[in-house]
Design a protein around this nucleic acid. Sequence first.
DNA 1: TGACGACTTGACCGATCGGTATAGAAAGGT
DNA 2: ACCTTTCTATACCGATCGGTCAAGTCGTCA
Lengths: 195, 195
Amino acid sequence: MAAAELFHAKGYNAVGVQEVCRAAGANKGSFYHFFDSKESLMTAVVGEGRRTPLMFDPRVFDETPALDVLLLLYAGLAAEVQAQYARSGHVQGCPIGSLVAEVATQSEPIREAASRALTHMRHMNKELVERAVREGDLDANLDAEAVAARLVAYVQGALLLSKTQNEPGVLESLRSGYLMLLGLDPNDPEAERSA
Amino acid sequence: MAAAELFHAKGYNAVGVQEVCRAAGANKGSFYHFFDSKESLMTAVVGEGRRTPLMFDPRVFDETPALDVLLLLYAGLAAEVQAQYARSGHVQGCPIGSLVAEVATQSEPIREAASRALTHMRHMNKELVERAVREGDLDANLDAEAVAARLVAYVQGALLLSKTQNEPGVLESLRSGYLMLLGLDPNDPEAERSA
DNA sequence: TGACGACTTGACCGATCGGTATAGAAAGGT
DNA sequence: ACCTTTCTATACCGATCGGTCAAGTCGTCA
């Protein structure tokens, strides 16, 4: 949906229903035939987004060592930020993070949808951490649930900082913290498998 | 200024100049005598905020071991989130983080003001880390600059997660990650000095 | 006293907001 | 052929948006 990009680029309140319709080549009347309100569109967009969080072929996802997947996910985000910046001149950050920061206190349905999306991310991270432990790449007495939550927080914060400074390189310079939260030594070659 | 609380509670685009004026007991005409635009008000508010980031008496700030200050800062944020929630039923997150997520791509002046504020936080953290190293409480071969940046990112992320789930307890459950980024073992009694 | 600048007031501007109403165009079933 | 249902098109609603304006109040200094 074209709406997703608009909301991501400009924010929820800064984009009007009219503008969304024009971008989608439709009319306002049609829009309100399919959606109850602007809010329900936004909720749908946030829910839909769960399709594209993994930027990989699911097959390589399963065949690749879990620690590598975790590192690739971070690298993929860093690359995505670079792409945003190259395309628009602005680091736009995480679509979910940015939107929830804006509307969490304003719309419960949207907040809940965003919360579910981030919980989904946490679960995915948790499974990856557990698998990485099983594969012997991470310390065995890590609390996978806690690590996963820390990673999500850290990544969201890194994206927000990058957006704040409008400098796409921030994620690279914060990568070492991501490794620390995984219980790895940032100066250790073990972490260099996909730098 | 009353405007700060309104913007923090509802966001930039969701609050009109009218509403700000009414809350401040003024008229719109008067407002535009003091500010060029809504944007310049917001920029001023963000700049002003630098006065209240340290929630302590500056004297105890200097007399307390730096590591304790770092831990107290985190605890203070956690308490602030609890207070927000108790007051309004919503976790509102960081005023700067929330606003910059909303308007970074929409207003350069506001984005720059927010960026300066977060840079200020980073500098403060850096000095605290350096002092804590000097006081022997942190590992001596930490890169203070890098640690400071990681802490800011992590804290912003933790605040955003708490806001997303609208659960004030999230900061407490993420405290261990803050310790890890300081190079401490979360299960070590050393960290319990101000738990 | 009179004049001047600082500040307040409330009406007003065009534009846009989210949302609705209504009439008509396709599309499909029978 | 006919009717119903789905979808489109556009004009329109009251409200509010950010911002302006002319008129007026007020304290200050000469």
